[in-house]
Design a binder for these strands. Structure first.
Lengths: 245, 245
DNA sequence: CGCAGAATTGAGACTGGTCAAAATTTGTGG
DNA sequence: CCACAAATTTTGACCAGTCTCAATTCTGCG
């Protein structure tokens, strides 16, 4: 796991267009007033991070909030002996990097090459006070993230491997449609190990479960990282605890 | 599981003093300006809920935010076949009831008799816009709650039963000291079933693990619901993955 | 074409779950 | 205050799903 300092290295790169500061249709911040957007644009910095590189480490001083413009990022927490839990996958338009005690509560790593907007925490905090619509937007995002985390707690604590995988595929599919991508096939930018660390399983169990769902005709693996949801309804039944369906 | 409508039944009860609207030392909102506190007081309603009663159900229209003044509340999510995951225990001073899509994402039930302050969501939203310090406070709480949920995801996905119990006891102990209660013995207001549903285990495994930790001299059960942390340091090592310690 | 990493498959072990019974605690009425 | 009933907790025996360790196959890339 290489660690670079891409944020400084590339600080003069004009970088990707920050979706959250642009007013196009799929804009993250379409709900912002022109003033709110202008404020965001002024304080933001851009960065590109190569696949597998780290954006920041768990425990580091949290001096920036990030918004993803392209690619996929994983947020993970580590146990002393190396056991890992991925707490979220971040897709374009999502924010990450909020800390309540000055230290990032998780490590953020790029799964694919990513583009992101960087907002210094201090200045973003100021701006929040001046732009109520921005404050409102971030607040809503946090509430949604919390609900998502609680949903994941239900998955981790109470679902079987089969249910976990089914639920995960359906969630990815739903998130894809929200970005106007097709509901199926679903792209899995993350490795089997990442999947396992997200679902509280081992890679072997993830792999076996894919095989099993494939055998049952619920999915088809176009490639290991591209899954066709052949029977989405049956998959939904599995995800809801529908036994052997 | 009885369901009453305590909020309306008791709407004229002067109710418990809302800690979050009072300026005493341990006030939740001590950081609020006098104006912010006054605003909160104006829109709040009080309620008392009996032990085992439901404050609101998962999926219901989320028209109020709550702040707990006394007792303990559990927040849980249900799977179709009855499997349950408790996503948080709420202690005095904590807020709960935020929803991102108009429906509560979990059920809130009183574990003990509880007192709470009720804030209509719509009016609280207005007030947030007028009282920046209130907005800031709630924002910080959400960030902290999210970090807590992610910590719990690590526990649910990657810890053994022994580690889960040790971690839980230490967390409760820490939370107790924050309310100026002694770090040990720790009171467990919730049943073994609640504990199991919070840690992603069964009651039997919870019970067996307590017995095992007791046998190893790390804890002592004064009563089933009162645990003495005899060896907090050893317990900490267990919680961090310290093998057979 | 051949190599390296990733994914899949296989065999056996083990943690935690299930079902059942015993013990303990709590609550109630005499 | 005590006796008894009900609920909760604890313990026991056995089982199943998932993990571990190991080997094999697939995929991408030089």
């Amino acid at each position: 796991m290489r660690v670079s300092d891409p944020l400084h290295v590339l600080s003069n790169d004009p970088g990707p267009v920050c979706r959250c500061c642009e007013a196009d249709d799929h804009s993250v911040c379409a709900s912002l007033t022109p003033e709110g957007m202008r404020g965001l644009r002024v304080i933001r910095g851009n960065a590109r991070v190569a696949a597998q590189d780290t954006v920041f480490h768990e425990g580091e001083a949290a001096d920036s909030i990030f918004s993803l413009t392209s690619g996929t990022v994983k947020l993970s927490k580590l146990l002393g002996d190396g056991r890992r839990q991925i707490v979220d996958f971040v897709f374009p338009g999502d924010f990450f990097g909020f800390a309540s005690d000055g230290a990032y509560p998780y490590t953020a790593e790029a799964i694919t090459p990513v583009g992101l907007c960087r907002f210094p925490t201090v200045r973003l905090t100021q701006l929040r006070a001046e732009a109520p619509d921005l404050e409102r937007l971030l607040f809503e995002r946090l509430v949604a993230d919390l609900a998502l985390a609680q949903e994941q707690m239900l998955l981790l604590g109470r679902m079987t491997a089969r249910e976990k995988i089914a639920h995960f595929l359906l969630t990815l599919s739903r998130r894809a449609t929200r970005r106007n991508d097709p509901a199926s096939p679903v792209a899995l930018p993350m490795s089997r190990q990442d999947l396992a660390d997200y679902l509280g399983l081992t890679i072997e169990t993830v792999s076996r479960t894919f095989t099993q769902l494939k055998r049952d005709g619920l999915i088809a693996l176009v490639r290991p990282e591209l899954v066709d949801l052949s029977e989405p309804d049956a998959l939904r039944r599995v995800a809801e605890g529908g036994g052997s369906d």
